[in-house]
Protein backbone atom coordinates (compact mmCIF):
# COMPACT_ATOMS: atom_id res chain seq x y z
CA UNK A 1 0.00 0.00 0.00
CA UNK A 2 2.42 2.66 1.19
CA UNK A 3 5.45 0.81 -0.02
CA UNK A 4 5.04 1.84 -3.64
CA UNK A 5 4.69 5.44 -2.61
CA UNK A 6 7.74 5.13 -0.44
CA UNK A 7 9.71 3.77 -3.27
CA UNK A 8 8.74 6.57 -5.61
CA UNK A 9 9.57 9.07 -2.92
CA UNK A 10 12.83 7.25 -2.43
CA UNK A 11 13.72 7.57 -6.07
CA UNK A 12 13.14 11.28 -6.15
CA UNK A 13 14.98 11.72 -2.90
CA UNK A 14 18.02 9.96 -4.27
CA UNK A 15 18.54 12.75 -6.77
CA UNK A 16 18.29 15.37 -4.05
CA UNK A 17 20.83 13.50 -2.00
CA UNK A 18 23.39 13.22 -4.72
CA UNK A 19 23.09 16.89 -5.43
CA UNK A 20 23.29 18.13 -1.85
CA UNK A 21 25.63 16.10 0.34
CA UNK A 22 27.16 13.31 -1.59
CA UNK A 23 29.85 12.36 0.84
CA UNK A 24 28.15 12.45 4.27
CA UNK A 25 26.14 9.26 4.83
CA UNK A 26 25.43 9.38 8.55
CA UNK A 27 25.44 12.44 10.72
CA UNK A 28 24.73 12.42 14.46
CA UNK A 29 24.34 15.84 16.03
CA UNK A 30 24.05 16.09 19.81
CA UNK A 31 22.07 12.86 20.04
CA UNK A 32 20.73 11.88 23.44
CA UNK A 33 18.82 8.83 24.48
CA UNK A 34 17.46 7.56 27.76
CA UNK A 35 16.06 4.23 28.86
CA UNK A 36 13.81 5.47 31.64
CA UNK A 37 16.42 7.11 33.86
CA UNK A 38 19.44 5.52 32.29
CA UNK A 39 21.31 7.89 29.98
CA UNK A 40 22.52 5.56 27.19
CA UNK A 41 23.69 8.11 24.66
CA UNK A 42 25.15 11.40 25.77
CA UNK A 43 25.55 14.22 23.25
CA UNK A 44 26.80 12.00 20.49
CA UNK A 45 28.38 13.77 17.51
CA UNK A 46 29.48 11.54 14.68
CA UNK A 47 29.89 11.91 10.96
CA UNK A 48 30.39 9.01 8.61
CA UNK A 49 31.28 9.66 5.00
CA UNK A 50 30.48 7.53 2.04
CA UNK A 51 32.78 4.53 1.79
CA UNK A 52 34.12 4.99 5.30
CA UNK A 53 34.57 2.03 7.61
CA UNK A 54 34.02 2.81 11.26
CA UNK A 55 34.69 0.37 14.06
CA UNK A 56 32.98 1.08 17.36
CA UNK A 57 34.27 -0.61 20.47
CA UNK A 58 33.86 -0.22 24.17
CA UNK A 59 32.93 -2.11 27.31
CA UNK A 60 29.51 -3.77 27.51
CA UNK A 61 26.72 -1.39 28.37
CA UNK A 62 28.60 1.53 26.90
CA UNK A 63 25.81 2.28 24.40
CA UNK A 64 27.60 1.16 21.25
CA UNK A 65 24.81 -1.19 20.17
CA UNK A 66 22.23 1.47 20.88
CA UNK A 67 24.24 3.89 18.79
CA UNK A 68 24.08 1.81 15.66
CA UNK A 69 20.53 0.67 16.29
CA UNK A 70 19.55 4.33 16.20
CA UNK A 71 20.86 4.56 12.64
CA UNK A 72 18.04 2.44 11.24
CA UNK A 73 15.61 3.54 13.91
CA UNK A 74 15.31 0.25 15.74
CA UNK A 75 15.77 2.52 18.72
CA UNK A 76 14.34 5.98 18.86
CA UNK A 77 16.58 8.80 20.02
CA UNK A 78 15.00 11.46 22.17
CA UNK A 79 16.92 14.56 21.32
CA UNK A 80 19.38 15.74 18.72
CA UNK A 81 19.26 14.78 15.10
CA UNK A 82 20.34 11.82 13.07
CA UNK A 83 20.59 12.31 9.33
CA UNK A 84 21.10 9.21 7.27
CA UNK A 85 21.63 9.45 3.54
CA UNK A 86 20.36 13.03 3.64
CA UNK A 87 17.17 12.14 5.47
CA UNK A 88 16.42 13.19 9.00
CA UNK A 89 15.14 10.40 11.21
CA UNK A 90 12.03 11.55 12.95
CA UNK A 91 8.66 10.04 13.45
CA UNK A 92 7.87 10.19 9.77
CA UNK A 93 7.10 6.58 8.90
CA UNK A 94 7.89 7.14 5.23
CA UNK A 95 11.41 8.21 6.10
CA UNK A 96 11.90 5.27 8.42
CA UNK A 97 10.71 2.79 5.79
CA UNK A 98 13.06 4.38 3.27
CA UNK A 99 16.06 4.37 5.59
CA UNK A 100 15.49 0.74 6.49
CA UNK A 101 15.59 -0.34 2.88
CA UNK A 102 18.82 1.62 2.40
CA UNK A 103 20.58 0.44 5.55
CA UNK A 104 21.46 -3.20 6.03
CA UNK A 105 22.04 -4.66 9.46
CA UNK A 106 23.70 -7.80 10.72
CA UNK A 107 22.99 -8.94 14.28
CA UNK A 108 24.91 -10.81 16.90
CA UNK A 109 22.47 -13.74 16.82
CA UNK A 110 22.09 -13.80 13.02
CA UNK A 111 18.28 -13.48 13.30
CA UNK A 112 17.58 -15.49 10.21
CA UNK A 113 13.96 -16.50 9.75
CA UNK A 114 13.90 -20.13 10.89
CA UNK A 115 10.74 -21.10 8.98
CA UNK A 116 12.17 -20.09 5.58
CA UNK A 117 14.91 -21.65 3.51
CA UNK A 118 18.14 -19.71 3.00
CA UNK A 119 17.01 -18.64 -0.46
CA UNK A 120 13.62 -17.51 0.81
CA UNK A 121 15.33 -15.62 3.62
CA UNK A 122 17.33 -13.73 1.05
CA UNK A 123 14.48 -13.07 -1.36
CA UNK A 124 11.97 -11.85 1.20
CA UNK A 125 13.16 -8.26 1.43
CA UNK A 126 13.67 -7.67 -2.29
CA UNK A 127 10.26 -9.19 -3.13
CA UNK A 128 8.13 -7.52 -0.47
CA UNK A 129 9.95 -4.28 0.31
CA UNK A 130 11.57 -3.60 -3.06
CA UNK A 131 8.82 -5.15 -5.20
CA UNK A 132 11.18 -7.12 -7.39
CA UNK A 133 9.90 -10.18 -9.23
CA UNK A 134 10.70 -13.51 -7.62
CA UNK A 135 12.91 -14.67 -10.49
CA UNK A 136 15.05 -11.53 -10.34
CA UNK A 137 15.21 -11.68 -6.58
CA UNK A 138 16.41 -15.28 -6.72
CA UNK A 139 19.12 -14.33 -9.22
CA UNK A 140 20.36 -11.58 -6.93
CA UNK A 141 20.17 -13.87 -3.93
CA UNK A 142 22.25 -16.56 -5.63
CA UNK A 143 24.79 -13.93 -6.64
CA UNK A 144 25.29 -12.87 -3.03
CA UNK A 145 25.25 -16.44 -1.74
CA UNK A 146 28.12 -17.12 -4.08
CA UNK A 147 29.88 -14.06 -2.76
CA UNK A 148 29.64 -15.35 0.79
CA UNK A 149 30.70 -18.76 -0.56
CA UNK A 150 27.72 -20.91 0.37
CA UNK A 151 25.57 -21.18 -2.80
CA UNK A 152 25.11 -24.93 -2.18
CA UNK A 153 23.12 -24.28 1.01
CA UNK A 154 20.34 -22.32 -0.70
CA UNK A 155 17.60 -24.88 -0.12
CA UNK A 156 18.48 -25.64 3.50
CA UNK A 157 16.94 -24.18 6.60
CA UNK A 158 18.93 -21.88 8.90
CA UNK A 159 19.05 -24.44 11.72
CA UNK A 160 20.89 -26.82 9.42
CA UNK A 161 23.83 -24.44 9.02
CA UNK A 162 26.71 -23.69 11.34
CA UNK A 163 26.87 -20.38 13.13
CA UNK A 164 29.46 -18.97 10.76
CA UNK A 165 27.42 -20.00 7.75
CA UNK A 166 24.30 -18.46 9.27
CA UNK A 167 26.08 -15.20 9.86
CA UNK A 168 27.30 -15.17 6.27
CA UNK A 169 23.75 -15.77 5.12
CA UNK A 170 22.65 -12.87 7.30
CA UNK A 171 25.22 -10.65 5.59
CA UNK A 172 24.04 -11.82 2.18
CA UNK A 173 20.43 -11.17 3.20
CA UNK A 174 21.26 -7.56 3.98
CA UNK A 175 23.27 -7.17 0.78
CA UNK A 176 20.32 -8.40 -1.29
CA UNK A 177 18.56 -5.18 -0.43
CA UNK A 178 21.41 -3.39 -2.17
CA UNK A 179 22.03 -1.14 0.83
CA UNK A 180 24.15 2.00 0.91
CA UNK A 181 25.23 1.44 4.48
CA UNK A 182 25.90 -1.77 6.38
CA UNK A 183 25.65 -1.96 10.15
CA UNK A 184 27.24 -4.82 12.07
CA UNK A 185 26.21 -5.33 15.70
CA UNK A 186 28.86 -7.60 17.22
CA UNK A 187 28.65 -10.02 14.30
CA UNK A 188 31.21 -12.46 15.67
CA UNK A 189 30.38 -12.46 19.39
CA UNK A 190 28.08 -15.46 19.22
CA UNK A 191 30.41 -17.55 17.11
CA UNK A 192 32.86 -20.27 17.96
CA UNK A 193 36.47 -19.11 17.46
CA UNK A 194 37.03 -21.20 14.33
CA UNK A 195 34.04 -19.60 12.63
CA UNK A 196 34.97 -16.01 13.36
CA UNK A 197 37.56 -16.04 10.63
CA UNK A 198 35.19 -16.99 7.82
CA UNK A 199 32.79 -14.19 8.77
CA UNK A 200 35.54 -11.63 9.09
CA UNK A 201 36.87 -12.61 5.68
CA UNK A 202 33.50 -11.90 4.13
CA UNK A 203 33.37 -8.57 5.94
CA UNK A 204 36.84 -7.62 4.73
CA UNK A 205 35.88 -8.45 1.18
CA UNK A 206 32.79 -6.33 1.59
CA UNK A 207 34.90 -3.45 2.88
CA UNK A 208 37.07 -3.73 -0.22
CA UNK A 209 34.04 -3.03 -2.42
CA UNK A 210 33.77 0.44 -0.90
CA UNK A 211 30.67 -0.15 1.20
CA UNK A 212 30.01 2.31 3.99
CA UNK A 213 30.25 0.23 7.16
CA UNK A 214 29.71 0.81 10.85
CA UNK A 215 30.89 -2.17 12.86
CA UNK A 216 30.51 -2.79 16.55
CA UNK A 217 33.07 -5.41 17.41
CA UNK A 218 35.78 -6.48 19.78
CA UNK A 219 37.88 -7.91 16.96
CA UNK A 220 40.73 -5.46 17.15
CA UNK A 221 42.61 -7.25 14.39
CA UNK A 222 39.74 -6.55 12.07
CA UNK A 223 39.74 -2.92 13.17
CA UNK A 224 43.41 -2.57 12.39
CA UNK A 225 43.07 -4.02 8.91
CA UNK A 226 39.83 -2.47 7.78
CA UNK A 227 38.83 0.55 9.80
CA UNK A 228 39.26 4.12 8.64
CA UNK A 229 38.45 5.26 12.14
CA UNK A 230 38.04 3.52 15.49
CA UNK A 231 35.69 4.89 18.09
CA UNK A 232 35.73 4.05 21.76
CA UNK A 233 32.49 4.47 23.63
CA UNK A 234 32.13 4.39 27.37
CA UNK A 235 29.14 5.25 29.54
CA UNK A 236 27.22 6.60 26.58
CA UNK A 237 29.90 8.94 25.37
CA UNK A 238 32.36 8.85 22.52
CA UNK A 239 35.62 8.89 24.44
CA UNK A 240 38.09 8.68 21.64
CA UNK A 241 37.87 8.76 17.89
CA UNK A 242 40.97 8.24 15.84
CA UNK A 243 42.64 6.40 13.00
CA UNK A 244 43.48 2.82 13.92
CA UNK A 245 47.21 3.25 14.04
CA UNK A 246 47.00 6.21 16.36
CA UNK A 247 44.16 4.64 18.32
CA UNK A 248 46.02 1.49 19.16
CA UNK A 249 49.56 2.82 19.45
CA UNK A 250 48.99 6.15 21.03
CA UNK A 251 45.68 6.34 22.86
CA UNK A 252 44.94 9.81 24.20
CA UNK A 253 42.54 9.00 27.03
CA UNK A 254 42.93 7.02 30.22
CA UNK A 255 39.76 5.11 29.51
CA UNK A 256 41.01 4.03 26.11
CA UNK A 257 44.24 2.80 27.63
CA UNK A 258 42.28 0.90 30.26
CA UNK A 259 40.04 -0.66 27.65
CA UNK A 260 42.88 -1.64 25.37
CA UNK A 261 44.86 -3.15 28.20
CA UNK A 262 41.88 -5.31 29.09
CA UNK A 263 41.09 -6.46 25.60
CA UNK A 264 44.50 -6.92 23.97
Amino acid sequence: MTETKTQEAGKTRKHLVSAASSSVMIEFTQVNKWYDDFHVLKNIDLTVHQGERIVVCGPSGSGKSTLIRCINHLEEHQSGSIVVDGITLNRNLKNIDYIRTEVGMVFQNFNLFPHLTILENLCLGPIWARKISRADAEDVAMKYLERVKIPEQAEKYPEQLSGGQQQRVAIARSLCMNPKIMLFDEPTSALDPEMIKEVLEVMIELADTGMTMVVVTHEMGFAQIVADRVILMDKGEIVEENEPVAFFNNPQHERTKMFLSQIL
Binding site: T2, S79, S81, V83, T88, N90, R91, N92
Partner: peptide, 17 residues
Amino acid sequence: KKSEQIKPKEQFDFFHD
Protein backbone atom coordinates in the same frame (compact mmCIF):
# COMPACT_ATOMS: atom_id res chain seq x y z
CA LYS B 1 14.49 15.11 27.46
CA LYS B 2 11.53 15.55 25.23
CA SER B 3 12.36 18.84 23.53
CA GLU B 4 13.81 18.65 20.07
CA GLN B 5 17.09 20.47 20.20
CA ILE B 6 17.44 20.60 16.47
CA LYS B 7 14.50 20.86 14.18
CA PRO B 8 14.16 18.10 11.62
CA LYS B 9 15.11 19.18 8.16
CA GLU B 10 12.16 17.33 6.69
CA GLN B 11 8.85 19.05 6.60
CA PHE B 12 6.25 17.72 8.99
CA ASP B 13 4.40 15.13 6.91
CA PHE B 14 0.92 14.81 8.36
CA PHE B 15 -0.17 11.50 6.92
CA HIS B 16 3.09 9.71 7.49
CA ASP B 17 3.76 10.90 10.97
